[in-house]
Amino acid sequence: MKTNGHLQVGLILTLNSVLLWCAAVPQYTVDIVLPCDYALLDSNVGGLGFTRQKVTLVLQNVTVMGEEPPEALPDYHPPENLDMTVFLATVDLAALSFAERLLHVECGDEGEAVECEISPIYSQLFIAHIRLPELSVAVMAKAALPIEAPDELANDKVVVPMSVELLVSSSPPSQKGSLSDEVTLNCDVWSGMEVSVDWHLQKDGTGHRLNLEDSRITIHKENKEASCLTIRQLSVHDEGTYICVVSSGKNRLQQILQLQIREPPQVTVAVSTIPKTTVTCRMERYYPLDVEVSWLLNGSPLTHVSPYTSSHRRNQDGTFSISSFLEVPVPQPGASPDTYTCTVSHVSLTDPIMIEGHVLPEKTDLSYTTTLLVAFCTIVILSILFLWKQSMKRQEKKTI
């Protein structure tokens, strides 16, 4: 690796808005060395498959934004006795916003696993894909000289001088959103040539160019080096694979971005007594389809009653609903109420949703006892009235 510290007046571009900041931005250049797989299509491997061989990809002269390390990093020089082919790709482009992450990966920082794959397109053109957590990079490079047998290149163990002509990155390459959210997919381009950017959606086995007549969808072309796709008021139908296609003349490079919809279920529990005592747990408007439900009785797993469930119902907005039912016994008179807990797990939830329903004990039949008590009280009251009237008559006779 090499460094060449210098200052340059630059522009900082944010993904959601353009922020111009005129300032001295520190930059330096390095060589980044990455272990890579050389992938070739091979019709003899399980039908249509790929053979892979270990190679080294060197991104030479990469401009990094930030302060130069206190110790100068050495230039990369291929070893005299090569144990694998080296693709030496010169990067004569503007500063790469993600270059420092690649540099840390090469230096062995923990927690950053990198995947790298390079494939030939024809005798001089190659495409490399570099993937890190939350970052995807595609590189188009041209070999300095035509290569007659690209399929034998990895076995030759040679140095292949190249120049990077086009580079596209996305961060993150996969996003999740809930219904009615807003999401922005980014496709950043580095190139010394004029390029055009188109967006496509791949879904259910078919693909199409995005319909820009949809008022929820906006494509921001901040400049020739960035394209942002914003979707407002997300719906289930927006889920799919979005492809950012960058074209320069006859050459094309693309980034694949995944958008997943995650909508948590709305859970309610109700207890009904007619015709039988039933506890119902309703899970409504969730996406995707799979949902798991289990029951607790007074805090312990339910064993003596088996629930039954309805079929999935597809709502108009593409979400799903389902219900789980329990026919339960009623506690004896004087006992404590039974608490049934519906526990719902779904991919959109960090922790399960737990909703309780209470089944009250039977009421004692007091009709006969009440009748006897009323009759007794009536007799007592009538007796008191009779005795009072008799007493009043005797008093009247004494007065006369």
Rank of each mutant, 00 (worst) to 15 (best):
E194W: 05
E165T: 11
E182P: 01
P173W: 02
E194V: 09
T184V: 13
L185N: 04
D181I: 05
V158E: 10
E152V: 05
S196F: 06
L201Q: 12
S169N: 10
D156G: 03
M193R: 10
S171E: 10
E165F: 04
A154Y: 04
P161A: 11
E194K: 11
L185T: 03
V189F: 00
V158N: 08
S171V: 01
V195C: 07
P172Q: 06
P150R: 12
W199K: 03
A154W: 05
S171I: 02
I147E: 14
S180M: 14
E152N: 13
Q175S: 11
L166K: 00
K157Y: 07
D151L: 09
P150F: 13
V160G: 04
D181H: 05
D151F: 08
L179C: 05
D188H: 04
V159D: 04
L179W: 01
P150D: 14
E165R: 05
E194T: 13
V168C: 11
G192W: 01
P161T: 09
T184H: 04
P150S: 12
E182M: 09
N186K: 02
Q202Y: 12
E182T: 15
K157I: 14
S178H: 04
E165D: 14
Q175K: 14
G177H: 00
S174F: 04
L153V: 06
V164C: 07
L179P: 05
D188R: 05
D151P: 02
A149M: 12
H200M: 08
V159K: 02
Q202S: 09
H200S: 12
T184N: 05
V159W: 06
S196D: 14
K157M: 15
V159T: 11
L167F: 01
M193W: 05
P161S: 09
V158Q: 12
K203D: 08
G177V: 01
V168D: 00
Q175M: 13
S174R: 10
S163D: 15
E152A: 11
P172K: 04
L185E: 03
W199P: 06
S178R: 08
L201E: 11
L185Q: 06
V197W: 01
W199C: 06
V160R: 07
H200L: 12
E152Q: 15
D181Q: 08
S191P: 08
N186C: 08
Q202M: 08
D156F: 06
M193S: 14
S180H: 09
A149P: 01
K203F: 06
T184Q: 12
V159R: 04
S191L: 02
I147Q: 11
Q175E: 13
P150M: 14
L185K: 02
S169L: 05
S196I: 03
S170V: 05
K176R: 11
L167K: 00
A154M: 06
I147H: 09
G177E: 03
A149S: 15
L201F: 00
S169H: 11
D151G: 04
V183F: 00
